[in-house]
């Protein structure tokens, strides 16, 4: 078991009081899963993704990643864990515009504390089908290509899991489908765990498990 969430809650201060973005969520996620957190805006899916992605810590309950309790870690330790073991794909790509595709992927290795192996970076880009775009800058690529660079970047360090927040939101349906198919292929070939936060059917049609959330609570899990 990769991730174990036990009665996890997240509370934010708001105005005079507070808001519970997540309430009492318990969940188990295995390695190699291809899973989405789904629900309407404000359902808490992004919050949940943040928590499992080590971007934030729960207000209550516990999350265990590979047996380690994330709640007991300091910010620094959490950051180190995240840098080494978690890959990110965002809806707005967030590539560094002044770096080439290859260099963007390289950054992930450097920041993750791994040796900057350019061959490995090249391979990552080949794996996402961008062999011809190695030295192109983001502004020279389409949205779909940029997102693929982001995926290569996320995967190059062979993370325990990849979290993707609305990865198709800035892509047309054709590119969106292509990207998702790619991720699914990578999941099957390499066994990388993918966790999505989405309300896009393109994603939902392709994931193997969906955790539906509403008002911070798990409504149902499909299948």
């Amino acid at each position: 078991m990769l991730l174990k969430l036990d009665r996890v809650g997240k509370r934010y201060p708001m105005g005079g009081g507070h808001v519970d973005a997540l309430k009492d969520v318990s969940l188990e996620i295995q390695a190699g899963e291809f899973l989405a957190f789904a629900g309407p805006s404000g359902s808490g899916k992004t919050t949940l993704l943040n928590l499992v992605g080590c971007l934030d810590t729960p207000s209550s309950g516990s999350i265990q990643l590979d047996g380690q309790d994330l709640g007991r870690m300091s910010r620094g330790q959490l950051g180190q864990l995240r840098a080494a073991r978690i890959g990110f794909v965002f809806q707005s790509f967030n590539l560094i515009p002044v770096l080439s595709a290859l260099e963007n992927v390289e950054v992930a290795l450097r920041l993750g504390g791994l040796p900057a192996d350019l061959d490995r970076c090249e391979q990552a880009l080949v794996d996402v089908g961008l062999k011809e775009q190695l030295h192109k800058r983001p502004n020279q690529m389409s949205g779909g290509q940029q997102q693929r660079v982001a995926i290569a970047r996320a995967l190059v360090k062979q993370p325990a899991l990849v979290i993707a927040d609305e990865p198709t939101a800035n892509l047309d349906s054709h590119n969106g489908e292509a990207v998702l198919d790619l991720m699914r292929a990578l999941n099957e070939d390499k066994g990388a765990t993918f966790l999505f936060s989405t309300h896009d059917s393109i994603v939902l049609d392709r994931v193997r498990r969906t955790v539906w959330l509403r008002d911070g609570v798990v409504q149902k899990i499909e299948p």
Binding site: R82, F88, N94, P97
Partner: peptide, 13 residues
Amino acid sequence: TGEVGVLRAMGMK
């Protein structure tokens, strides 16, 4: 912001 955020996410101190 986004760019810095992702760098931080990736481990930049």
